[in-house]
Computed example of a mutant assay.
Amino acid sequence: MEVRLLRFFVAVYEQKNLTRASEQCFVSQPNISNGIKQLEEEMDKTLFIRHKRGVEMTNEAHYFYPIAKRLLGELETLPKMFQKKKIENKITIGVADSLPQEHKKQFFKTANALNDLVEWSVKPIDRSCELNLLVREWKLEEDLFLPLWKEDYKLCVPSGHPLLDKKEIDLVEDLKDEKFIHCPPCEAHKQCLSILSSENQNMITVANCETKTETLTLLMAGLGLTFLPEHFIDGWYGFETRPYKGPNYFREVGLSYSRKSLQNPAVSKVINHFSKNVLKTRPFKEFGYYN
Rank of each mutant, 00 (worst) to 15 (best):
T46C: 05
G94S: 05
E230L: 06
L114R: 08
E42F: 04
Q15P: 00
Y290V: 14
S121R: 10
E23P: 00
L114S: 05
G54N: 06
E230V: 02
M1K: 03
L5F: 11
Q106F: 00
G288W: 02
A113M: 06
L175M: 14
D126G: 08
W236T: 12
K109L: 14
V122W: 00
L144C: 06
F180D: 05
A11D: 10
W149D: 05
V172F: 11
I204C: 01
L131I: 11
Y244P: 07
K104R: 13
N132A: 08
T211Y: 09
L228E: 04
F108A: 08
N59R: 14
A68S: 13
R4N: 08
I181Y: 09
P247L: 12
K212I: 08
N248I: 09
Y63F: 15
V253C: 10
P229H: 06
P66F: 10
S258W: 09
L193H: 03
N291Y: 12
G246T: 03
G235E: 03
M1P: 05
L140H: 10
K212E: 15
Q38F: 01
L114T: 04
P66I: 10
S275V: 03
S194Y: 12
E74G: 00
L196T: 11
V95Y: 07
N200S: 00
N200Y: 00
G288N: 11
C25A: 13
I233Y: 02
Q15H: 13
F239E: 07
E119H: 07
L39N: 03
F9W: 12
E130P: 04
V55K: 02
E2T: 09
E40F: 06
T205M: 04
N132I: 04
V267W: 04
E76T: 14
T58H: 06
R259N: 14
E60W: 14
L47C: 07
D174T: 01
T92Q: 10
K123W: 09
S261N: 05
P100Y: 11
N208T: 01
C183S: 15
K80W: 04
A188H: 11
L171K: 01
